[in-house]
Amino acid sequence: MNLELFIWVEAICTLAIFSFLFRENPVYRLFEHIFLGLTIGFVLMKTWLEVLKPKWWDRLIYCIEVGDPHFWIWIIAFILGMMWYFQLSRRWYWISRIAIGISLGVGAGMEFKNQFMLIMPQITASFKPILVRNTQGMLQFSFNNFFMVFTIVAVLSYFFFSFEFKYKGMQLLPRAGRLLLMISFGAFFGNTVMTRFAVFIDRIQFLIQQWLHIGGG
């Protein structure tokens, strides 16, 4: 019985949001605000129960209870965290800059390693032989490799901002880059249609099969 009630609630919420397809209306607005409140409340609860409480509060209390002198680490963590809230004060806003600065600094430092670990293997993987010999399908492999290297060079040239390609011959490379970018955006578009439809079909499947009990499953 409870499950049936939840299914009805889920169906009503789904249809309320779908009503936007017809036009913006008070029902859509009501459910939009309900979702806003729900998600904020949910995330707040989860953040306390699964992050702050086990990883900070419980550890701080434990350190104090056992007399561990390193409890001050958790106090500093609390102070650093609280610094973010000074963003709300016009007078003490500068305090939040310390916390923001630390976050940005740590983030930037980690990004060095992150980007090089990600990008270097891809750069070395793009060292493709333009001519391949003595293998089956060597023409196809040669063309694929050449096309891949040409695409990388052309697209990179499209994003050169500090000089202009003055001569018409030189403009061919960035133009080719732009064309190849558009082709890739077509592929992105196709993939995105796939995602959007999958999400929509999942809702329709729920409405048809689980709510209205039409069809098997």
Partner: peptide, 18 residues
């Protein structure tokens, strides 16, 4: 720099294969 690296790397890979 990266464009040059890729071009040189591909030339190097071609010679390596041939």
């Amino acid at each position: 720099l990266i464009t040059l690296l890729i071009v040189l790397g591909s030339i190097g890979a071609t010679f390596a294969t041939l």
